[in-house]
């Protein structure tokens, strides 16, 4: 059941991404992108990444897409403008780059394994484990709940979390200064 749901939501996300990239109107693109965000959020739920799934809906489908739609409607592009930007630019380059990426990445994923490194006690090399095992670890300790993620963020990654606040402050200042006509 979970496996079938994964394929359903995965196909939804992929189809929505394709539609978002090919739509002429930016508003339609943005709406299809919201569908893709929800499809991915459902897949995060299936992978027991609850916190990431909720943040995906709140931040991406909520905040970021509202910002996008706000700017799209602020610019208020006419139909003739949309027509003029509808034709693809360098289609061959894009498709070839994407195909090369798919082939290279597909080979990498197909032959992937996880090298555990030398044994800490004996120093002997250990055999590489399959990166995508049939059996995965489960349990309340490694579920992506807010409690577990929060413990990691405010423990091991506290410095990165604090630096993030500086990044957001810089982004706020940058956005305000860029959109102001005059700085006085």
């Amino acid at each position: 059941m979970t496996t079938a749901l994964f394929y359903v939501f995965g196909a939804t996300a992929l189809a929505a991404a394709l539609l978002a990239v090919t739509r002429k109107n930016a508003v339609a693109s943005a709406i299809w992108l919201i569908v893709m965000f929800f499809g991915l959020a459902a897949n995060y739920v299936l992978m027991e990444a609850w916190f990431v799934a909720v943040v995906q809906v709140l931040v991406y489908a909520g905040a970021i897409m509202v910002l996008f739609l706000f700017v799209i409607m602020l610019l208020d592009l006419r139909t003739e403008v949309l027509e003029s930007t509808a034709a693809p630019r360098l289609p061959a380059v894009g498709v070839i780059a994407a195909l090369l990426f798919l082939v290279g990445g597909g080979i990498a994923v197909h032959s992937a394994s996880l090298d555990p490194g030398p044994d800490p006690q004996t120093g002997e090399a250990r055999q590489a484990a399959a990166l995508f095992p049939d059996e995965v670890a489960t349990g309340p300790e490694i579920e992506g709940t807010a409690e577990n993620i929060g413990g990691e963020i405010f423990g091991k990654w506290i410095l990165a979390f604090e630096v993030t606040s500086v990044l957001l402050l810089g982004a706020i200042l940058g956005a305000v200064i860029l959109t102001k006509r005059r700085l006085t």
């Binding site: 996300a13 992929l14 991404a17 394709l18 978002a20 990239v21 930016a26 693109s29 893709m36 996008f68 700017v71 799209i72 610019l75 949309l82 930007t85 509808a86 034709a87 693809p88 630019r89 360098l90 289609p91 380059v93 894009g94 498709v95 780059a97 994407a98 195909l99 990426f101 798919l102 990445g105 597909g106 994923v109």
Partner: peptide
């Protein structure tokens, strides 16, 4: 991988900056 490829096509081929 497939999603990234779709995004790559969008970045290289679309004219509309949005």
């Amino acid at each position: 991988l497939a999603l990234f490829a779709v995004g790559l096509v969008g970045v290289t081929c679309r004219r509309n900056i949005l």
